[in-house]
Design a protein around this nucleic acid. Structure first.
Length: 946
RNA sequence: GCUGAAGUGGUGGAAUUGGUAGACACGUUGGACUUAAAAUCCAAUGAACAGCAAUGUUCGUGCGGGUUCAAGUCCCGCCUUCAGUACCA
């Protein structure tokens, strides 16, 4: 038992940590608190590959470091266990998603345990667990029971809104909510039926049921949120997405747009991720401008088209209006002559999928409505067009077109021969629009002639406000988030329907558990899978879920058939860890007061516009309603980069079952066949026999090899994925090299936030470092433990303190990669000094233990310590060991470095100069010349010029 | 198009923030040990030129300029790659 048997050591300490609950966090402590969190994984069927633990290793290093630094550290882990893949698998296999999920979680746990994380598993959460989603449902109800007041920039209980309606109607409230509903007085409110009141209230609630245009994915049979679509196709599966009108639950995240934007300034997140969120929220300041319709159709004379513009200064350049095809007034204002063309155009554009519309950007299409509107300032009549370059979802779905100042308006005007009016001094706009607002001088524009963009904008807004035809307005790109999914494996809504109106189930009766279904597909009538459940009705007398055949619409009502999206459970889980088993509340006040929010959050940047935005929204809402003390979930965020795989390809000669080695490819036409990377060694040589056995069609394949008989593959770096056969399993690495090697190597690969390719061959470097470390604590042959109590040499102490300083700085800066190098250098130097002194070797283990906890625990134990190394305080850096009397000064001539010279540190500037000029080598380089001047930067450099 | 990040040996990547570019590791080559392999250890390794040699000289951080005694690092102008986003008015 003297060699470095990492497998035994690692198993031993993992067992020890579990049995002693070494990493259990307590909700009370004299120590300062620190909360380190990973984005919890979705437990997929393929298990973990070496890329997944990267962020977990980083957070584990930091958590362990903080413990050494005397913090009470909360470092939990759990599973985001609702989601599409388990359900897709259930559809194919008929197996219940909960079964698959449970199996996958077990497998994940095994894999995670093997890497030696310091998670407090007693706080584990699973979003698909009813004890957990009870509170997801509870939050949903709270959102339903709340409205947002812009005046106070805060959410309030809906009961207060009802009180306001009873007292003053909704006229002022609408202004405060930014909602456009017919006004009513308190008197008429009080006279409304209960049903009408409920319908009105739905327009104010923070989660609401509404017919909205949604992204429908026919292949997946569900709607998708904007962030679940990439390039017009679904993020999962890559299926086409079309626009469809459906009644859906939505979250009024748009109410929080301004606060979500402002809150970013105070967060310690990377600039890039903040910028992504800022762009996604997409604030633009401009004005609304109203145009009255004035067509011959008497009935709609006086209808008003509201437009949004960021360039009010260009208002005198307006020559037409464009409405989106979906605009509500299109139908009303179109003249009888134009009705046919308009109808055809709308039909055609509705058929286009999101993707086609995007691909079609260069094609200018549109149609004239026949109607005209009056310009609010010039009173001129301008035509109203329809064009699908105007989006229904942004602004008001209508634009005032200024062809001289906007390229799209310009293109449209030229295509349809609409006049272009120039309002820019000294600019030619006949070929393209002039869009540089900073250099604008306005002309041809009545009272704003000669003004700059800012001045003109302000004057125009003032004018429009005075004649009540517009106002300053702020618009956000951020849309309300669709919250319904037509799927089985998600949180059921705590909602039943009475007379077509949604009713919340009292929170006393939560959770509403997912019902059993026979199959996981939509019903024949197109209802979601929950439509197949036979026990899915709500009995308002018994307050429980009962069979559907009991529905009488008097006391038993049908339940909601949709389920919640994946981001529901992940939007608040960071608070559940604080008090994971609480049955009364989602987490106790004491626990939340103590832990506050996450100090350090580590996860991928792909969640920038999804999870990271939604959870900020929910936290702000829970804060408003007094359920939370904090209004941001994550103080500091680190986005770890992806670890990529190195795929291998064998090249098949076109049309033949014959493969050719890399170097002989020449100009041959070949098809690269992706092959399993386990058949390929470090020199890119293919194991031909393994490859032949892999697939029956390759059994008789012929191989044109290199001259030495080997066959070389082509390689390419891409995402690690089962379908690319380039997955490396962390279990295999642990088996062969140990978890400590895996942990250190993942850190060593490169900067945490950067994407980098995995190369198993390189792991021997850190692995042999650990072996050398082991030998440092044993006698030369690595036979017996040998650490001396003698005082250490000055040089050894210097190495130790250099290492303390560097490692501490590195961890604080999350430069874990350079720390690993620091350890390697330290161990090499200590070995060359034959250092075996406890005073040096003991602190070294504490430094190393966040990175390689198992070997550190083992050696720590061998040094005679009975407690886990994780309880040891971080070594204190002492500068006195690094102070030197002399220093190597670089001496350069004309900026070119020539040699170094050892000089005493207490020399003055002049003394250094004298010493340098007297040096033999200086004379050699000067070759008798006299220098123009000598520059001495004390402590740094001497430069001789001339 | 817009926004953000980044370009350094054969490879992954260092560089105290303006001060000896290429740390550390992989790979490669040579050597030691061994019957052999594995393991381990040692040495060399940016390029070019000169020299038997120690060594020396020149070039070198995407490209072109600039500031400075001194630039991978700062400034100006480009190029390329990656990521996010997009008829957003």
């Amino acid at each position: 038992m003297s060699k470095y048997h990492f497998n035994n050591i690692e198993a031993k300490w993992q067992k020890y940590w579990a049995e002693n609950q070494t990493f259990k966090a307590h909700n009370q402590s004299d120590k300062p608190k620190y909360y380190v969190l990973d984005m919890f994984p979705y437990p997929s069927g393929s298990g973990l590959h070496v890329g997944h633990p990267l962020g977990y290793i980083a957070s584990d290093i930091y958590a362990r470091y903080k413990r050494h630094k005397g913090f009470n550290v909360l470092h939990p882990q759990g599973y985001d266990s609702f989601g599409l893949p388990a359900e897709q698998y259930a559809i194919q296999s008929g197996q219940h998603p909960s079964k698959t999920t449970k199996e996958n979680i077990l497998r994940y746990r095994e894999q995670l345990d093997r890497i030696g994380f310091s998670f407090d598993w007693s706080r584990e959460v699973q979003t698909s667990n009813p004890d957990y989603y009870k509170w997801t449902q509870w939050i949903f109800i709270q959102l339903f029971e709340s409205w947002y007041c812009n005046k106070h920039e805060q959410a309030f209980p809906i009961s207060e809104l009802i009180k306001l309606f009873e007292e003053e109607g909704n006229i002022l409230i609408n202004v405060r909510c930014g909602i456009k509903l017919p006004d009513f007085t308190s008197k008429s409110w009080n006279g409304y039926s209960e049903e009408k009141k409920q319908k009105i209230l739905l327009n104010y609630r923070l989660t609401y049921l509404a017919e909205t245009e949604v992204n429908w994915c026919p292949e997946l049979g569900t709607v998708l949120a904007n962030d679940e679509i990439v390039n017009g196709i679904s993020e999962r599966g890559g299926y086409p997405v079309i626009r469809k009108k459906m009644t859906q639950w939505s979250m009024r995240i748009s109410s929080y747009a301004e606060r979500l934007l402002k809150g970013l300034d105070k967060l310690d997140w990377s600039d890039s991720i903040k910028e992504i969120q800022r762009n996604w929220i997409g604030k633009s300041i401009g004005a609304s401008v109203m145009f009255r319709v004035s067509n011959e159709n008497q009935e709609f004379q006086g209808a008003t088209i509201n437009t949004f513009t960021t360039r009010p200064d260009t208002i005198f350049g307006v020559t037409f209006l464009t409405l989106s095809p979906e605009h509500e007034l299109v139908d009303k204002i179109t003249t009888i002559e134009q009705r046919h063309d308009v109808g055809k155009y709308i039909e055609a554009s509705a058929k286009k999928s999101e993707r086609e519309r995007m691909a079609d950007v260069k094609n200018i299409t549109g149609v004239f409505t026949g109607a005209y509107a009056k310009h609010p300032l010039t009173k001129k009549s301008i035509p109203i067009w329809i064009g699908d370059y105007v989006m229904a979802g942004y602004g008001t779905g209508a634009v005032m077109a200024v062809p001289c100042g906007d390229q799209r308006d310009h293109d449209f005007a030229r295509h349809f021969n609409i006049p272009i009016v120039n309002i820019f001094e000294g600019i030619d706009v006949s070929v393209e629009a002039f869009v540089n607002k900073e250099e604008t001088i306005i002309t041809n524009s009545d009272f704003i002639n000669g003004l700059s963009y800012e001045e003109a904008t302000q004057k125009v807004i003032e004018k429009l406000e005075s004649i009540e035809r517009g106002a300053m307005e702020i618009n956000y790109r951020l849309r309300d988030a669709v919250f319904s999914r037509q799927r089985y494996w998600g949180e059921p809504f705590p909602v039943y329907y009475k007379e077509g109106l949604p009713q919340m189930i009292d929170i006393k009766h939560l959770p509403i558990q997912l019902p059993e279904v026979e199959r996981y597909l939509p019903t024949k009538t197109g209802n979601p899978p929950l439509g197949r459940a036979e026990v899915w009705a709500w009995d308002t007398k018994k307050n429980e879920v009962v069979p559907n055949n009991k529905i009488d619409y008097k006391s038993v009502f049908p339940l909601e058939l949709n389920t919640m999206p994946g981001w529901a459970g992940s939007s608040w889980y960071m608070f559940r860890y604080m008090d994971a088993h609480n049955k009364e509340v989602f987490a106790s006040k004491e626990a939340m007061d103590y832990w506050e929010n996450v100090d350090l959050y580590i996860g991928g940047s792909e969640h920038a516009t999804g999870h990271l935005l939604y959870s900020r929204f929910w936290v702000k809402f829970l804060f408003d309603r007094g359920f939370l003390k904090v209004n941001e979930p994550f103080k500091k965020l680190i986005n770890q980069g992806m670890i990529l795989g190195e795929s291998a390809f064998v090249n098949r000669i076109d049309g033949k079952n014959q493969f050719i080695t890399e170097s002989k490819l020449g100009n041959l036409i070949v098809q690269p066949i992706q092959t399993d990377v386990s058949f390929v060694n470090n020199s890119n040589e293919l194991d031909i026999d393994a490859f032949k056995k892999w697939r029956p069609e390759f059994k008789d394949a012929k191989f044109i090899t290199e001259d030495d008989g080997t066959f070389k593959v082509s390689r390419e770096v891409e995402k690690m994925s089962k379908s690319k056969y380039n997955v490396v399993n962390p279990d295999d690495i642990c088996e062969q090299y140990g978890a400590d090697s895996l942990r250190m190597y993942e850190m060593f690969l490169g900067p945490l936030e950067q994407a980098k390719p995995w190369n198993t061959a390189g792991i021997t470097g850190v692995h042999s470092f650990l072996k050398k470390l082991w030998k440092l604590y044993h006698n030369g042959a690595g036979e017996s433990f040998l650490v001396s109590d003698d005082p250490a040499t000055k040089d050894s102490l210097k190495i130790l303190h250099k290492t303390i300083k560097k490692v501490e700085e590195d961890i604080e800066n999350f430069s874990f990669n350079t720390s690993v190098s620091t350890f390697m250098i330290a161990v090499n130097e200590l070995r060359s000094q034959k250092c075996n002194h406890k005073v040096v070797l003991e602190p070294l283990l504490i430094l190393l233990s966040p990175y390689a906890p198992h070997i550190a625990e083992e050696l720590w134990n061998k040094l005679g310590n009975n407690e886990s190394i994780s309880k040891a305080p971080f070594p204190v850096f002492d500068e006195k060991y690094l102070i030197e009397n002399t220093k190597e000064y670089p001496i350069s001539f004309n900026g070119k470095m020539r040699f170094t010279m050892e000089l005493s540190l207490d020399l003055s500037k002049d003394e250094i100069e004298t010493a340098v000029m007297a040096h033999e080598k200086t004379k050699h380089y000067l070759k008798g010349r006299k220098p123009d001047r000598v520059i001495v930067v004390p402590g740094k450099i001497v430069n001789i010029v001339g």
